[in-house]
Design a protein around this nucleic acid. Structure first.
Length: 489
RNA sequence: GGUGGGUUCGUAUAACGGCUAGUACUCAAGAUUUUCAUUCUUGCAAUAGGAGUUCGAUUCUCCUACCCACUACCA
């Protein structure tokens, strides 16, 4: 959900300003590659109606060769490997970065040592002079290690004493002192890939990105990114940044996680997701949400139009969206409100559309129904439903006779004298005269009618009896009531 | 621990430094409905705490508290 919202805000911003929305796959961590994840992202965006202008075409294919429509291809960072090394080396040459030869084990040891003394190990201006890197080793040794070993990295040389002045489109001016920052790894020889920081800056520059709208978790690395633009001499074309508030779990504190969804009964994925280990997580699509409702509720999580309008189409969102109406604090997700959005969208759908969606469900239940009949049913029940899937629960007895009767209702309305009155009323009336008959013969209206409803639908609560009879026919109604009678003995 | 960010009803949010702090969801009550749901009406409910600036602070400044993120050869 969080990822989709970020993509949505980027899309809205881009479209509003006549820009392009580019989908770039940031897969620079070979250890964390998840098969199917990329296809999933593309499909999820497509379901939401978000089509990238670049990166992938409308069919979801990732374009790998530069073309007029995809001038910045390829769009997978794993396929841009060759691009990054020169930029990393450029930073070393200009004195903004250095080669580091410390092994993972050595660094771990350093961390453990520091922790034993109640301190935190940080690779920075205080420690880099004591570690194995191109700043401390003789030039010849560096040359040898570079050639012989395959596990070195390029680290950014964080300035010791500077205050980085930054501006965020949502949060305003921010200042950070560089002494509190560390020498981040920019490039890894082991897999010939950059880390996010380098890849992001280089690609945003190459792809002519003008605005970066991302999650708040990136705010702490914004100083590094500013410094990288500066080191490359790209300050003039540096994009503007906006850091979005996080999506929080509905109860308690902390980020929204899929665990919360499972526990509280709502999806946290746009589409059903099956992880490589076989775990599946439910999705909004499969739960029956309309994509328009999903997009709408996501848009309202952290942003507001400044008016009291709550229902927005994607096009309306493009018009109305504004970064300065995006809030600064984390937004707790409210599952009830999510359902409300879907209810609103369900009501906006025409009876014909809803009938078309209900028909396959009926078929699954073994019911072959006339589309016109189904459409009439939908017209009657749509106000009672949140999802199309609810239709069957609400109106199954308009299609098939009940086989079960709610025991609690049978106890309450299935007494012999009540049933006798109900049967008499049905036998001596028509759909139009039933109510009058009950009244004129002094029968207890509530009891008798509920007994009839119990016979017709299997429960004492539900649709109006007149409506049920209109759909199933009076004779069928009488038959069902007698069927209930035989059950009662 | 350090750095950064944040804090208005339970939740999402509104309010040029100025009406009785508004709206939606949830919840409760009532009306309608022979039942349930819908619908309508009404109601409950908030500026984290403390200083300061000001005629006046939800709004600006500082302090405290709490929450979150980051602190990886992850993004």
């Amino acid at each position: 959900m969080g990822g989709v919202r970020t993509a949505l805000y980027n899309y809205l911003y881009a479209k509003q300003h006549g820009g392009d929305f580019i989908l770039r796959i940031e897969d620079t961590d070979s250890n964390r590659f998840v098969p199917g994840a990329e296809e999933y992202i593309i499909e999820a965006l497509r379901w939401c109606g978000i089509y990238p202008d670049e990166g992938v075409d409308a069919a979801g294919n990732v374009v790998c060769s530069p073309s007029e429509r995809h001038p910045h291809a390829p769009y997978r960072q794993s396929q841009r490997r060759g691009i990054y090394r020169q930029y990393a080396e450029q930073l070393v040459d200009s004195g903004h970065a250095y080669y580091a030869f410390d092994t993972a084990a050595e660094l771990e040891e350093a961390r453990a040592r520091a922790e034993a003394q109640g301190q935190t190990f940080i690779y920075n201006h205080l420690t880099r002079g004591d570690l194995r890197n191109s700043l401390t080793l003789p030039r010849a040794e560096v040359k040898r290690l570079l050639a012989e070993r395959t596990d070195w990295t390029v680290r950014f040389m964080m300035p010791e004493d500077r205050v980085v002045q930054m501006d965020d489109l949502i949060r305003g001016h921010i200042e950070v002192h560089t002494a509190t920052l560390d020498d981040k790894v920019l490039w890894k020889r082991a897999d010939e890939l950059p880390t996010y920081h380098l890849a992001n800056i280089v690609d945003d520059h190459l792809m002519e990105i003008t605005e970066v709208i991302r999650g708040e978790e990136w705010l702490p690395s914004l100083p590094l990114h500013y410094l990288l633009y500066e080191a490359f001499g790209w300050q003039d074309s540096q994009p503007r940044f906006a850091h979005l508030p996080l999506l929080l779990k509905p109860v308690g504190n902390g980020k929204l996680s899929k665990r919360d969804g499972d526990k509280l009964g709502f999806p946290v994925f746009p589409l059903r997701w099956t992880s490589p280990t076989g775990e599946t997580s439910r999705g909004y699509r499969e739960d029956g949400y309309f994509p328009e409702a999903f997009v709408n509720l996501l848009a309202m999580l952290g942003w507001n139009p400044g008016t009291e309008q709550e229902i927005f189409s994607l096009d309306e969102l493009v018009q109305a969206f504004s970064l300065d109406k995006v809030g600064k604090s984390g937004a707790k997700f409210n599952p009830d409100k999510a359902k409300w959005f879907n209810r609103e969208y369900l009501r906006m759908r025409s009876d014909k559309e809803l009938a078309a969606l209900f028909l396959p469900i009926l078929k699954e239940k073994g019911v072959e129904a006339d589309p016109a009949f189904v459409q009439d049913v939908v017209a009657l029940i749509k106000e009672r439903a949140t999802f199309v899937q609810d239709f069957w629960d609400i109106a199954h007895y308009l299609f098939v006779a009940p086989t079960e009767f709610v025991q609690k209702d049978v106890d309450k309305f299935g007494k012999p004298e009540t049933y006798a009155a109900a049967l008499e009323a049905m036998e001596h009336s028509t759909a139009d005269t039933l109510e009058n008959y009950v009244r004129e013969h002094g029968m207890p209206m509530g009891k008798v009618m509920n007994c009839i409803r119990l016979g017709l639908s299997g429960a004492a609560s539900g649709l109006a009896i007149a409506d049920i009879l209109r759909f199933i026919g009076y004779d069928e109604g009488l038959r069902r009531l007698r069927c209930l009678g035989s059950r009662l003995g």
